[in-house]
Nucleic acid binder design. Structure first.
Length: 839
RNA sequence: GCCGAAGUGGCGGAAUUGGUAGACGCGCUCGACUCAAAAUCGAGUGGAUAAAACCGUGCGGGUUCGAGUCCCGCCUUCGGCACCA
C-alpha cells in the first residue's frame, strides 16, 4: 500500500473500450511488455501452456473461451511474482489446408497449402492481439516450418534406431473421406467413425509405420504426482485397458498354443478352445472333413466389417475345426473351434473357453452343445445345478472339480488378490504349464498417413538394404512444393518423381523414398520444448533450458484431447527421457480442461445452424475486456455452456461501474465515520482473499462475482471525504490490480488515470491482512428445533453464555421458549444457535 | 453390460469441516431522471399467503440438534469403454 494519498484529478469521460484497447495493445507491443527472458533466474519460473490451435484463419468464440481465461490465469501468476512463459504457436500441418488446395484445384485455381497456412497464421496472430493476450510471439512456432518438422524426422530416426518405430503389414483403419489411414485412437465410439470428419472407417490391409507406445503401457498408467482431472486419468486408464491374469500353454497337434486368461483358476472348467478365424494355427489344425466349412467361415469373417459383426446382435457363430487340444491340468482332450468373438488383435488371439464362468463362452456352449463344468460354488448354494443355469456364474465362491486348488476361495477380486487365482498361478508355474501375465488393450500408434501436408518420413527403400534411415546430417527431408493434390488413396508424393526417386545412403544405387507423411499428432507430441528455442539448429531442444523450464507447470485445453494428444505427449516425453535429453517423466504437471461454448440455442456453434457468435463482432460492439470478462463469468470454466447475448450486459455494466467508480468525482459529502472506513477496508481485504483463492483454483466466475461485490460496496461508501482516505486508495488500487488479469486494457487505463506510474501489469498482486477481515459484530441465526426463528447481532468475541442469553431474549425466539423446556443448546461460533426444546 | 460425472429460482450459476439455501449476474416489477425513449441510478424479486404458520436443492428412505452436502435404494441427463478373454 502507498504511504500517502495520491492527488486525484477527475476527468469525466464515459468508458470507451474502442479508444483505449488499441492504444494499449500498441504501447504494450512497443514496450515489449510481454517478452520473457528465459535466462532470468531471479524469479521462480512458471511455464503456462495452452494448446496451440490449427491455423484455420479465423479466431472463433471457442478459441476465445480457451485462451482468454488461460491468459488471465497466466497474468495472475506473473503478478504473483513468477517469471511466466506463456507462448503460442500453430499446429500447422493437417488436412483442412490440403483440402482447400484440392477444392481450389478443382475450380482451376492454384492455392498452395503452405501459402494458405502462412496467410492464416498472420491473420490469427492479429486476432490474438485484439484479445489483449500476453503471448510472447518471439517464441512462436509453426509446425509446417522445415526447421520444426526436421525434428519430427530426427525423433522418428532415434526411435527407429531403438526399435520403437517399425513397419508392419496388417489390417488398419481407413477413412474413405480423408483418404488416409488412422491411428486406433482416431476411430471413435460404437459407430467407429473418423475423429476428424465423422465418416465410418473401413478396414484395409496395408504396410504402415508404427510407434511402440505399448512398451510404455505400464508407465502410462501411473499418474502419480500429476494434478490432472480424474476424468482424463480414467479415460486414459480405460484406453490402456490393463488386464491381469495368466498365460497358459495348451498342447495341440500343430504345437503348443498359449492363451491369455484373467481367470486361470477356472482352467479346470475349460471344456473347449476358441481361436480367432485369422489365427495362424487354423490352416494346419483343420481336419480334411471340416476344411470346406472352416474356409467358408474364415472367408466370411474376413469380409465382414466390425459394424456387420455388431449389427448381428452378438449372436455367437463359429465352427469346429476337427482338432483337439489337451487341457494341461485335466489332461482331457477338448475340441478347438474358431469364432469371430475371439479377436486376433487382443491377447494371443486364442482363448480357453470356460462356459461355466464366462457369459460369451456360456452362450457359445449352449448353442453348440458343448460341456459346461462347474468350478466355482457360490457360498449360498449346496450344490451347483448346471442344467438350471440361464447365465454364466462369475461371482465369488469355493473352487470345486479343480484338482489341486479344490477348496480355495475366489473372492471376486482381480489378479493375485484372489486366493484361488494366486494358487493356480503358483501351481502352473511349478508345473511349467504357464505363468502370470498382463495384457493391455492399448495398440501401437499407427503414424503413416497417405496425405501430402505433413512431415515426410526420413526413410529410403533400397532393393538390397531394405528400409534405410536417411542420414541425420541430411535432414530435413523437405516436403516438395510442386505437387499434384488430387486425392487418389495414395500419397500425392508418390507421383512426384524427383522426390520419390533417390539413391540408397548405403550403396548409392537407385532407391525410392517413403511417400507417406506423418500423423500431425507427432508434431504436437513435443512442441512445448521447442518454444524455448524455436530456431535451434543443432538439436530439437536445449537441455539446459528444458531442465529449468519444463515440465510445463499448467497446461490447459479441450477435453477432446484426453486420450489422443495427451497420451502421445506423455509417451514422447518418456522416450525423450530415455534418449537422455531430459530427466522428467511427465510433460504436464497440472492439467485443466475448459468446456465447450455453445450457441444461444444450446447447440454446437455451426454455420449451418446459424448460431455462430463471432468474436470480432463482439469486440466491435462491447470491447475485448467485456468479452473476456463475460466468458469468464458465464460459469465454471470446465463446464462451458451456451452463449447468452443478454448475459453479457452484466459484465458490460460491471466494467462501466468500475470505470465510474475510479474516474468520476463524488457528489456525496456526508460525514465520514470510523465504521465506514473499517467496513470498507474489510470489504477490500475480503475481496483480495476470495479473488486470490479463486484464481488459484481456476474459479474465474466467482472471482468476478467477488469483484462485482467490491465495486458495489465501494460505490455505496464513496463520498468526498472517503475518497481522500488511505483505505479508499487501497481499495481502488486493489480493485484495479485484481481487474488487471481479467480485463487488462481498462485496468491499465484506470491505473494511469488514478495517477500511477508504470504498467499495472508489472505490479505485484495485492495481499490481504487477516486482521482486517475480522468483524466487530456478527449476525447469527437462532434456530429452535432446527428452524430459523430469529437473528441476533453479537460481538465477535462474545462468550457462549452471552450469545445464548441474547438468543433467548430475541422476541420471536422467546415466543417459542414459553412453556417449553430447553433440552440442548448448540452454539456454532459465528454461524448460529440451535435451541432444542421439548414442548 | 462396466466405469465416471452431474441434477439447486423464469435463466447462467453461488454455498470451508454437515451450520441462516439461492452469493454474483441476466430477466422481470416498481420508482427517480427525461417531453418521451435509451442509458444511468435507487428499491424489490424461490413458491404460496392479507400476514404468520407453511413448502422448497431429481425421487423414496435413513443418520443427525441440524442434510444441497453424509449413508442406502431408485430416476434422468451427459461422457468414456465394451464379444478385450
Amino acid at each position: 500500500m502507498s504511504e500517502a494519498v495520491k492527488e486525484i484529478s477527475y476527468e469525466s469521460t464515459r468508458y470507451n473500450p474502442h479508444a483505449i484497447e488499441p492504444k494499449w495493445q500498441k504501447k504494450w507491443e512497443e514496450a515489449g511488455l510481454y517478452k520473457v527472458d528465459l535466462s532470468d533466474q531471479s524469479k521462480p519460473k512458471y511455464y503456462f501452456l495452452t494448446m496451440y490451435p490449427y491455423p484455420s484463419g479465423d479466431l472463433h468464440t471457442g478459441h476465445w473461451y480457451a485462451e482468454a481465461p488461460a491468459d488471465a490465469a497466466a497474468r495472475y501468476l506473473r503478478m504473483k511474482g513468477f517469471n511466466v512463459l506463456f507462448p503460442m504457436g500453430f499446429d500447422a500441418f493437417g488436412l483442412p489446408a490440403e483440402n482447400a488446395a484440392i477444392k481450389a484445384a478443382r475450380r482451376g485455381e492454384n492455392v498452395h497449402p503452405a501459402t494458405l497456412t502462412y496467410k492464416q497464421i498472420d491473420r490469427m496472430v492479429k486476432q490474438f492481439a485484439q484479445m489483449g493476450a500476453m503471448f510472447d510471439w518471439s517464441k512462436m512456432i509453426a509446425t509446417c516450418d522445415p526447421d520444426y518438422y526436421k525434428w519430427n524426422q530426427w525423433f522418428f530416426l532415434k526411435m527407429y534406431e531403438k526399435g520403437l518405430a517399425y513397419k508392419k503389414q496388417s489390417p488398419v483403419d481407413w477413412c474413405p473421406s480423408c483418404n488416409t489411414t488412422l491411428a486406433r485412437e482416431q476411430v471413435i465410439g460404437d459407430d467407429r467413425v473418423c475423429e476428424r470428419c465423422g465418416t465410418p472407417v473401413i478396414k484395409k490391409d496395408l504396410s504402415q509405420w508404427y510407434l511402440k507406445i505399448t512398451d510404455y503401457a505400464e508407465e502410462l498408467l501411473n499418474f502419480e504426482g500429476l494434478d490432472w482431472p480424474a476424468r482424463v486419468r480414467e479415460m486414459q486408464t480405460n484406453w490402456i485397458g490393463r488386464s491381469e491374469g495368466a498365460e497358459v500353454n495348451f498342447e495341440t497337434p500343430a504345437g503348443p498354443l498359449t492363451v491369455f486368461t484373467t481367470r486361470p483358476d477356472t482352467l479346470w472348467g475349460a471344456s473347449f478352445m476358441v481361436l480367432a478365424p485369422e489365427h495362424p494355427f487354423v490352416a494346419e489344425l483343420t481336419s480334411a472333413d471340416k476344411r470346406t466349412q472352416v474356409d467358408a467361415y474364415v472367408e466370411e469373417a474376413k469380409r465382414k466389417t466390425e459394424i456387420d459383426r455388431l449389427a448381428e446382435g452378438k449372436e455367437k457363430t463359429g465352427v469346429f475345426i476337427g482338432a483337439y487340444a489337451k487341457n494341461p491340468v485335466t489332461g482331457r482332450d477338448i475340441p478347438i473351434w474358431i469364432a469371430d468373438y475371439v479377436l486376433m488383435g487382443y491377447g494371443t488371439g486364442a482363448i480357453m473357453a470356460v462356459p461355466y464362468g464366462d457369459q460369451r463362452d456360456f452362450e457359445f456352449a449352449r448353442k453348440f452343445g458343448l460341456d459346461i463344468i462347474p468350478v466355482v460354488k457360490p457360498d449360498d448354494v449346496e450344490t451347483v445345478d448346471v442344467a438350471g443355469m440361464d447365465k454364466a456364474y462369475d461371482g465369488p465362491g469355493t473352487m470345486i472339480n479343480s484338482g489341486p486348488i479344490n477348496g480355495k476361495i475366489h473372492n471376486g477380486e482381480k489378479g493375485q488378490n484372489s486366493p484361488a487365482i494366486a494358487a493356480t498361478i503358483e501351481y502352473l508355474e511349478g508345473q511349467n504349464l504357464g505363468k502370470a501375465a498382463i495384457t493391455y488393450r492399448l495398440r501401437d500408434w499407427l503414424i503413416s498417413r497417405q496425405r501430402y501436408w505433413g512431415t515426410p518420413f526420413p526413410i529410403i527403400y533400397c532393393e538390397e538394404h531394405g528400409a534405410v534411415a536417411v542420414p541425420y546430417e541430411t535432414l530435413p527431408v523437405e516436403l516438395p512444393t510442386d505437387v499434384e493434390f488430387m486425392p487418389t488413396g495414395e500419397s500425392p508424393l508418390k507421383s512426384h518423381e524427383s522426390f520419390l526417386n533417390t539413391t540408397c545412403p548405403i550403396c548409392g544405387k537407385a532407391a525410392t523414398r517413403e511417400t507417406d507423411t506423418m500423423d500431425t499428432f507427432m508434431d504436437s507430441s513435443w512442441y512445448w520444448f521447442r518454444y524455448l528455442t524455436p530456431h535451434k539448429e543443432d538439436g530439437p531442444l536445449d537441455a539446459k533450458l528444458a531442465k529449468h523450464w519444463t515440465p510445463v507447470d499448467t497446461y490447459t485445453g479441450g477435453i477432446e484431447h484426453a486420450i489422443l494428444h495427451l497420451m502421445y505427449a506423455r509417451f514422447f516425453t518418456k522416450v525423450i527421457r530415455d534418449l537422455g535429453l531430459i530427466q522428467q517423466d511427465e510433460p504436464f504437471k497440472r492439467l485443466r480442461n475448459q468446456g465447450i461454448i455453445l450457441g444461444e440455442d444450446n447447440e454446437k456453434m455451426s454455420k449451418s445452424r446459424g448460431n455462430v457468435v463471432n468474436p470480432d463482432d463482439l469486440v466491435a460492439e462491447y470491447g475485448a475486456d467485456t468479452v473476456r470478462t463475460y466468458l469468464m463469468f458465464i460459469g465454471p470454466w470446465d463446464q462451458g455452456g451456451p452463449w447468452n447475448s443478454k448475459g453479457i450486459e452484466g459484465p458490460t455494466r460491471f466494467l462501466g461501474r468500475s470505470w465510474t467508480l475510479v474516474t468520476e468525482e463524488p457528489t456525496n459529502d456526508e460525514a465520514i465515520t470510523e465504521k465506514t472506513l473499517k467496513e470498507l477496508k474489510r470489504a477490500v481485504h475480503t475481496a483480495i482473499k476470495e479473488v486470490t483463492d479463486d484464481f488459484e483454483n481456476f474459479q474465474f466466475n466467482t472471482a468476478i462475482a467477488e469483484l462485482m461485490t467490491l465495486v458495489n460496496v465501494m460505490n455505496k461508501a464513496k463520498s468526498k471525504q472517503v475518497v481522500e482516505t488511505l483505505e479508499w486508495q487501497e481499495g481502488i488500487e486493489g480493485l484495479i490490480k485484481m481487474l488487471a488479469p481479467i480485463a487488462p486494457h481498462i485496468a491499465e487505463e484506470l491505473w494511469e488515470r488514478s495517477n500511477h506510474k508504470g504498467s499495472i501489469h508489472l505490479k505485484n498482486w495485492p495481499s490481504y491482512d487477516e486482521t482486517a477481515l475480522v468483524k466487530d459484530s456478527i449476525s447469527m441465526a437462532v434456530q429452535v428445533n432446527g428452524k430459523v426463528r430469529g437473528q441476533i447481532e453479537v460481538a465477535t468475541d462474545a462468550s457462549k453464555d452471552d450469545i445464548l442469553d441474547t438468543a433467548k431474549a430475541e422476541s420471536n425466539v422467546a415466543r417459542y421458549l414459553d412453556n417449553a423446556q430447553i433440552v440442548r443448546e448448540i452454539v456454532v461460533p459465528g454461524k448460529l444457535v440451535n435451541l432444542v426444546i421439548k414442548a
